[in-house]
Amino acid sequence: MTLVPDPWWLSAGLAAVLFLDAIASIRPPTFIRVCLDGVNFPRDWWWSLIVIKLAAAGGLIAGLWMPGIGLATNAAVILYFLAASYAHIRARFLKHEFWVNCLGMLVLALLALVFGFLV
């Protein structure tokens, strides 16, 4: 196991996807609105997801130079999407938004962790 991602581009790619997701969430397109409404996430709290995703993107980028930061952030991103998956299952909202958006991001974060830090 390493404390700095190798290859670096896995963490950078995950950071880029999270950053773009956060920017898109400022004025959420239909698929994001449907997803958040489907799990009954209060609209008054949608802003918090933007902050979380921007902080995660920043942590992943900082982790390219600061040992341990990227690893901790990557683990937190996995926990975030596990919680999102639980919310989908609990709400019984298992449409394509769950399979593509939520589980897709979870798989991306897992791949970045495994191949960037563990292998």
Rank of each mutant, 00 (worst) to 15 (best):
G104I: 08
L106C: 09
S25E: 04
G58Q: 00
C102Y: 00
L106D: 08
G13K: 03
L3C: 02
S11A: 14
I26L: 12
F98T: 12
T73Q: 03
L113R: 04
L54E: 05
L14Q: 07
A83Y: 10
G116Y: 04
A109Y: 03
P42E: 04
A91R: 07
A55I: 06
K95W: 11
L36C: 00
H88Y: 12
V114P: 00
V107Q: 05
C102K: 02
M105G: 03
W65E: 03
G38I: 03
A22L: 06
A83K: 06
S85P: 04
D44T: 15
W8T: 15
P7C: 11
D21H: 14
N40Q: 09
G63M: 01
I23T: 13
G68L: 10
L10I: 07
Y86G: 07
N74Y: 00
I23M: 12
L103G: 03
G70C: 01
L10N: 03
T2M: 04
A12S: 05
M1R: 08
P5V: 05
P29Q: 13
H96Q: 10
L106S: 11
L10Y: 07
I61L: 15
W45K: 15
I89V: 15
S48D: 01
F19M: 14
K53S: 08
S11Q: 04
F31G: 00
L64G: 13
V119F: 09
G58W: 00
S85C: 10
V114I: 15
I23C: 05
S48W: 10
V34H: 06
F115D: 05
A109F: 03
A83M: 11
P7W: 07
T30V: 10
L103Y: 01
L106P: 08
A16P: 00
A91E: 08
L49V: 12
L79F: 14
L94V: 13
P5A: 06
L118P: 03
H88Q: 06
W99Y: 13
V77T: 08
F93I: 03
L14F: 09
L108K: 00
A55P: 00
W99F: 13
H88P: 06
Y80N: 12
L20A: 14
